[in-house]
Nucleic acid binder design. Structure first.
Length: 354
DNA sequence: AATTCGGGGCC
DNA sequence: GGCCCAGAATT
């Protein structure tokens, strides 16, 4: 028989109190700060999210400060953290809380769930940590801990899997201290019950862990493999005019990097040489409004920018012109715009000594 | 119910 | 190169 309440919770929280990291958002139960930290940490490691959290609470001490900031500024501060819909939803929710809720966040799971960018996990985290509502969180850590300790081999990303784990977590949660329980199980997964080579010999659950007894720790949790990544071929047109201007365009519509900025882009089905590029209708449309005197390839070897579901084979083409007639911005002001890391890397390399 | 949203760290 | 990360929105 598996370990049951209250033993699971007591052991877990005892471990947590001895081993928890001293994270800055653990010093508050302010819904604004907990909400901000939870959004930032979605699919993001603490080490990666922490500097952004510090930047944001410095720039926006209150939800009103965040709401009153232009969206472009929020995206610029978010630049490099990825999943940019989080930043757009963050800003939209800050405006809604400020303008429609008198600056006060909802104080329960059901109403928190209605906020943009707040799903079951985040609503549970805020409700439990800030308002002591016993709603169990289920994140990547929780899947791993529960699948191993209780020997659950249901795939975590298919069919009934998420609901099954939520139900188990909900049975286990300590209703007297739900926020502490939720943080404890996540911390345990992040620090001890890690994906690769966990130290089961020193584990507080090794006397009851089903996976450990059956030597199945490495195989849990079960996760259905993702589809192979798609390859895409990007050709960026980097315009350099004699008065040191260039062109940036904001990405619109669906797809990656929505509302971020980049150089004019021509996507092709495969890598293209200069003659092929020049003959593309998109290029001819572009050059109709730009009398460039030279074009050269910056990187013969494509930069491969790897995202979760696609690999971007990217080459940068440098176009020199006396004057460009399109919407132009000074090269010195590129860094005011929120750009993808792919663009940021190029800019810092190419313009380093410009 | 499956797919698509980033980027970085680890092995 | 593959996997994972304090998941949510969209299709």
């Amino acid at each position: 028989m598996s370990i049951l309440n209250p033993h699971f919770s007591k052991r877990l929280i005892s471990w947590y109190l001895d081993n928890k990291r001293d994270l800055i958002w653990r010093k508050t139960v302010s819904p604004y700060h907990i909400w901000l930290s939870e959004i930032m940490l979605q699919q993001t490691r603490v080490a990666q999210g922490l500097p952004y959290y510090l930047k944001f609470i410095n720039a926006y001490p209150t939800v009103q400060d965040l709401a009153n900031s232009p969206e472009d500024e929020v995206l610029k501060l978010w630049q490099g953290l990825g999943y940019y819909s989080r930043a757009r939803n963050l800003h939209a929710t800050a405006k809604r809380v400020t303008e429609e809720m008198n600056g006060v966040f909802p104080d329960n799971y059901k109403d928190l769930l209605k906020l943009k960018g707040v799903g079951e996990y985040t609503a549970s985290a805020i409700a439990s940590i800030c308002f002591n509502e016993p709603q169990a969180v289920v994140d990547g850590n929780v899947y791993r801990v529960l699948s191993r300790v209780f020997g659950v081999s249901t795939p975590i990303n298919k069919g009934n899997g998420p609901k099954e784990f939520k139900n188990l977590a909900q049975q286990l949660i300590d209703k007297e201290q739900p926020g502490t329980f939720n943080q404890a199980i996540m911390e345990f997964g992040a620090r001890h019950c890690v994906p690769k080579n966990p130290n089961c010999n020193s584990c507080i659950f090794n006397d009851v862990c089903v996976a450990f007894k059956k030597n199945e720790v490495e195989g849990l949790p079960v996760k259905i493999k993702a589809k192979p990544v798609k390859k895409r071929y990007f050709n960026y047109l980097v315009v350099l005019s004699d008065n040191e201007n260039t062109i940036l365009k904001q990405r619109i519509g669906k797809g990656i990097w929505h509302k971020l900025y980049e150089f004019p882009l021509i996507e092709t089905l495969e890598e293209v040489d200069i003659e092929t590029l020049k003959n593309l209708p998109q290029f001819q449309d572009f050059s109709e409004n730009l009398d460039f005197r030279s074009i050269s390839l910056f990187n013969e070897e494509a930069v491969v920018h790897k995202l979760s579901h696609q690999h971007l084979y990217t080459r940068f083409w440098i176009l020199e012109t006396a004057k460009n007639n399109q919407a132009e911005i000074p090269i010195s002001e590129i860094n005011k715009y929120a750009v993808p890391v792919l663009i940021e890397n190029f800019v810092s390399e190419f313009f380093e000594n410009y």
